[in-house]
């Protein structure tokens, strides 16, 4: 008897656990990146959208690679990431409906104040990379196939260096998100490639400062797309599209531009509508 009672109680509680999900039925799931979530942008802009439409936006923040994979599996309604090449492939493969450009921020190279590669204050990211490799100065890479990681690798290729040769030596892959990678860089006084948003909201900087910024090649474009309802029928087409439309609308773009940490604007809207 006690057993049966316990079982029912358990099932009731399981129902209870689901209660928040049932109570808020109007919601969409957005697969996005750690950079947008951790910089605090979503906390700033989503309430504006939710207030206007009554649609709750649930953000699962991962690396761009994982976020796109979530979209491919049909576990998200909208994907909001920053790796143009991968995004275009995502749409071309039929997983996304149409890609819209939303905003950009920029990447920066951070490094220890001691600056063993002697590159502080320069603007040329490629030259900076070459000096780091030449000095065999420690460099912490995310190594997680995220958008930031992809951008970092692209620049190594431009610089004509295969960082894998330094693997285990000066080149360290953390295999984790931006935050953990910055934690690692901070503790071992390594250089690291990061988006400005995460850097500005990052607290455990230790001796790290920005060493290279302002290069055209550090431009970081974000795109947004609805997951293809033709491929995954359960995708919340209308609500998802409402969100996409709002993000690229004048109102959404203003919400992005308004977000600042201190005096710094983190993201620069550039939707082509």
């Amino acid at each position: 008897m006690a057993l049966i009672r316990g079982l029912f109680l358990g099932l009731a509680l399981l129902g209870l656990a689901q209660a928040p999900a049932v109570a808020q039925q109007k919601f969409i799931t957005v697969a996005s990146t750690t950079s947008t979530e951790q910089s605090g942008l979503f906390k700033h802009m989503l309430p504006v959208f939710e207030k206007k439409t009554g649609i709750q936006v649930r953000v699962v923040a991962q690396g761009t690679g994982q976020a796109l994979d979530m979209g491919r599996r049909g576990d998200a309604d909208v994907v909001f990431v920053h790796d143009k090449v991968a995004e275009e492939k995502f749409v071309a493969d039929g997983f996304g409906v149409q890609r819209f450009e939303v905003m950009y921020n920029d990447f920066v190279l951070v490094g220890p104040k001691a600056d063993p590669a002697k590159i502080a204050g320069t603007k040329d990211i490629v030259a900076g990379y070459q000096k780091i490799a030449a000095a065999k100065a420690p460099f912490a890479s995310r190594g997680d196939k995220s958008g930031t990681h992809a951008a970092e690798l692209r620049l190594w290729r431009v610089a004509g260096i295969d960082p894998q040769t330094g693997k285990g030596g000066w080149y360290r892959e953390t295999g984790s998100g931006m935050g953990p990678t910055l934690n690692t860089a901070s503790s071992m006084n390594a250089y690291a490639f990061t988006d400005r948003g995460t850097w500005l909201s990052f607290k455990n900087r230790g001796d790290l400062v920005i060493v290279v910024e302002g290069d055209q090649q550090l431009f970081n474009q974000y795109g947004i797309m609805l997951v293809n309802p033709a491929r995954h029928t359960h995708v919340k087409k209308e609500m998802g599209q409402t969100f996409v439309d709002w993000v690229v609308s004048a109102e959404g773009q203003k919400a992005i531009a308004d977000y600042k940490i201190g005096a710094d604007q983190l993201f620069f809207p550039n939707a082509k509508r």
Binding site: L14, A17, Q18, P20, A21, T29, R58, V60, R72, R73, G74, D75, H232, H234
Partner: peptide, 18 residues
Amino acid sequence: SRAGPLGSLGILFTPTAM
């Protein structure tokens, strides 16, 4: 996951899944 055998339940990313 939607692509998985129990995907139709739609309970991924809910407290129930946890």
